[in-house]
Nucleic acid binder design. Structure first.
Length: 404
DNA sequence: TATTGACCTCTA
DNA sequence: AGAGGTCAAT
């Protein structure tokens, strides 16, 4: 590409393999900050994503990773509190950062290939999710991931982010302070302090739960503190223990996670998928459940008083099994694509519960999923394409009518 | 073993 | 009301 941002290294990477905008803000990690960059003079006929629109930053323990991306390149750099002494040292750090990136984004996994596999296996995916490209599963730190998703229960993504951020500011190590990018829209030149995620031992004290309550964690405050305490009590090196779960079979790893306070089936599955390498685990939340009911021919569930569908362990299992057999070995990854697509559509159209409750009393496991109708496509669609614009307009936000 | 409520707080 | 649930008591 034309120019490399000052101070950045570049890595060739098609945006279809990784979309930072989609991945970093879709509720996998809650710690990335995204900083809008000043738009340069826009040339005519310039393709989308010709230039980076944002810089993304994440504090690790010893450095702050800064990322940008355009159509076919990932730009990266790391900031440190001190100035590097030598060329050698600087080169070494660059190498470490690149290594971290490859691991964190799991760049060895060919996402484009996966998309085509899913599309081939699943009509619904092909029709609805294929246009949300570049969405992959991050390989996160297990402790951070665990604490973050303990915070996620009965909560909004937005609020989860605030909670995790305040947790780091309060208990995390200061990684580095640095000012906003020179080419950002930010007018202030003041340095921003970036804090890494706290280690388990920093969260064990009784005072932590009290403080977290004050910070608005609600009933999750005790979960966080007790989980940290439990991990430190039971394990010499809690973080290594959690990382070690990667080597266990799924069921065993899940059993370990379920011992932790505030970790139930759904949160455990999130951790398994997002930090313990269990790529075929599909966390079933309310959104995924709705999607499964509507598009994947699950039998009408027990009850629905007032249209509500209860989430029981049995249903959880059924949904999970169905989606795994639909998507295969990387089912958890596919789920993440659909979940993100789902979030976008809800943001645009609001949650429209299916009037058409699953009608089929019995749907063979092997049956082809119902072909999405046009309105289904809108339901999932991000931005209405020109083709569909008119009918989208005629199908405005469906105000949920209470079904009695 | 399966079903219910309660649970903190914020936002739409 | 409901949010990417979990826990504890029937």
């Amino acid at each position: 590409m034309a120019n490399i941002p000052k101070g950045f290294k570049s890595l060739p990477l098609p945006i279809a393999q990784l979309s930072l905008a989609a991945v970093l803000k879709c509720g996998q990690s809650f710690r990335w900050s995204s900083i809008p960059l000043a738009a340069g003079v826009k040339q005519e006929e310039e393709p989308e994503n010709a230039y980076p629109s944002h810089e993304y930053r994440l504090a690790l323990r010893d450095r702050v990773v800064c990322l940008r991306q355009d159509k076919d390149t990932l730009f990266y750099r790391a900031a440190f509190p001190d100035v590097p002494l030598s060329e050698d040292q600087s080169a070494k750090r660059d190498k470490e950062t690149l290594e971290w990136l490859r691991d964190y984004f799991q760049l060895d996994v060919d996402l484009v290939k996966l998309y085509s596999d899913w599309a081939e296996r699943d009509v619904v995916f092909k029709e609805t999710a294929l246009r949300f490209s570049g969405i992959r599963i991050l390989r996160q730190d297990p402790f951070e991931n665990t604490i973050s998703f303990i915070c996620s229960s009965n909560n909004h993504i937005n609020r989860i982010g605030k909670m995790v951020q305040s947790l780091c500011t309060e208990y995390g190590p200061l990684a580095c302070s640095l000012p906003p990018p020179e080419d950002s829209e930010e007018t202030s030149r003041d340095a921003i302090a970036y804090y890494g995620f706290p280690t388990p031992d920093k969260l064990t004290d009784e005072s932590v739960s009290t403080r977290l309550r004050e910070l608005g964690f609600g009933y999750r405050a005790e979960y966080v503190q007790r989980t940290a305490q439990m991990l430190c009590d039971e394990h010499e090196d809690p973080e290594s223990y959690l990382v070690g779960l990667r080597k266990l079979p799924v069921e065993e790893a899940r059993a370990e996670l379920l011992k932790l306070c505030g970790v139930g089936p759904k949160v455990a599955d999130c951790i398994l998928l997002m930090s313990l390498d269990k790529r075929n685990v599909v966390p079933v939340d309310t959104h995924v459940h709705q999607i499964a009911l509507k598009y994947y021919g699950l039998r009408g569930t027990p009850q629905g008083k007032g249209g509500k569908v209860p989430m029981t362990p049995k249903i959880y299992e059924a949904v999970c099994t169905k989606l795994v057999e639909t998507w295969g070995d990387y089912a958890g990854w596919a789920h993440s694509v659909l979940f993100t697509a789902d979030l976008r559509s809800f943001a645009n159209y609001g949650l429209a519960s299916p009037d058409s409750t699953p009608s089929k009393p019995e749907t063979p496991a092997t049956s082809v999923p119902p072909t999405p109708t046009e309105s289904d496509a809108d339901y999932f669609g991000e931005t209405p394409t020109k083709k569909r614009r008119s009918r989208t307009a005629s199908a405005p936000r469906l105000k949920r009518v209470k079904t009695e």
